[in-house]
Design a protein around this nucleic acid. Structure first.
Lengths: 218, 218
DNA sequence: AATAATTTTTAGATTTATCTAAAAATTATT
DNA sequence: AATAATTTTTAGATAAATCTAAAAATTATT
């Protein structure tokens, strides 16, 4: 049996691993899940013994195939529950993370299978992130950060990098949602801010915002 | 913060307390949650320190008002989730208990408020048990065990005492569901079996079954 | 390449919930 | 009422996950 704590470590290793580094350092995991490096060392040894991770002293950890399957399954559950919360229970996209963090650990194959059907097999969660299918396949669309778009590009918002409540509330306040169409009018070299045209109105967003909003060009 | 384990002990004390006894013995709790009496002693002390229960050595435990509020809130969550599983995810009534046991511990006021609304404020769960309202009020209907009904009584099935998968499957197999109408045709004094008339067909059920099926007479 | 700084691991302690086995208290039986 | 049987509690151990502080290894800097 896999414990809730083990699941959270596996999730962390998976997410940190996606961000480029293959061997995730104990310190990175510690920072991510707000614990001490010494605790991580212990847990990573245990995950290795149980076959979820590969780990050699001083060389960080990577997930095995078995570990990856667990991670993807948790992500699938998390994202399906997020869709449920928004579509069925009228949560806004900045309120769902905490609750989904709890729901993702519920153990029942049938529950997830039926939830998926009930939601009519959604492909993306409310933040634009892809939902892995039953076999663990993730189909990602070709999205770029708004900061990378060129002047003149017509874009559609398809996702967020940062899904913190503060950022999402900022987007809400400024009427930017998934599916919103925009055109890049100007990119200011001085501060890397981006001027965009949204519903016939010009609007300047900081580089920080542009760096956290995914768009599809064309 | 209340832990999952504490919640399960509180639930157990509540249920055992409902069954007549006011001061629930440590042994009874131990049997109910499949642990040892010595573990129960420890936990009951802790619940007492935290204000969820009253406990004096050798005299068993009772829930305080605070403890009862917790218990009722868990029961509310459990039963709402059961309705969700049956009504929305096509679970059958013998499959829902385990999953609801997990879901009942999810912490989010909004989640339950919205779930309740989404399900259109159900008053009873799929086993016929009443769902406490937001304030903790439980309105119970006047039901009796089928074994207590008199010959000639026209009854409607309104609930089950035992909600084990085996019993529920037996009912399914014999086309007895909540809402099913039946008439008591005969009560056999020898073995206390009951002959009932269901959809124009006579059917004999054992005393054990009659002792676990709640009906409303008239 | 030697030293300094940082990261990672080890060793030992702590907390929560559990257990076993023995002691104490309560309840039942003669 | 004394003894037997049962229940309940205590004492001490164990397992999981964490922590602090010190030691070891790695990486960076001069």
């Amino acid at each position: 049996m896999i414990t809730l704590t083990e699941e959270n470590y596996i999730k962390s290793i998976y997410h940190l691993g996606k961000q480029g580094v293959n061997n995730v350092s104990t310190n990175a995991i510690a920072k991510d899940i707000k614990t001490k490096a010494s605790s991580v060392t212990d847990m990573v040894k245990k995950l290795s013994e149980k076959g979820y991770a590969d780990y050699k002293k001083y060389q960080g950890a990577t997930l095995t195939e078995k570990g990856k399957r667990v991670a993807v399954s948790i992500i699938r559950k998390h994202r399906l529950w997020e869709v449920f919360l928004v579509e069925k229970l009228n949560f806004s996209w900045d309120e769902i993370h905490e609750v989904a963090e709890q729901l993702e650990h519920i153990k029942s194959e049938k529950l997830i299978k039926q939830l998926d059907a009930f939601l009519e097999y959604p492909t993306h969660d409310p933040h634009g992130d892809p939902i892995p299918d039953e076999t663990g396949k993730i189909k990602s669309i070709d999205k770029i950060l708004l900061s990378q778009a060129q002047i003149g590009d017509a874009c559609i918002c398809v996702g967020v990098q940062d899904s913190s409540s503060e950022f999402l509330k900022y987007l809400d306040k400024n009427n930017i949602a998934l599916g919103t169409e925009l055109i890049v009018v100007h990119k200011e070299p001085f501060d890397n801010s981006v001027t965009i045209l949204v519903s016939a109105k010009e609007f300047i967003i900081s580089n920080m915002i542009a760096n956290n909003l995914f768009v599809k060009v064309g």
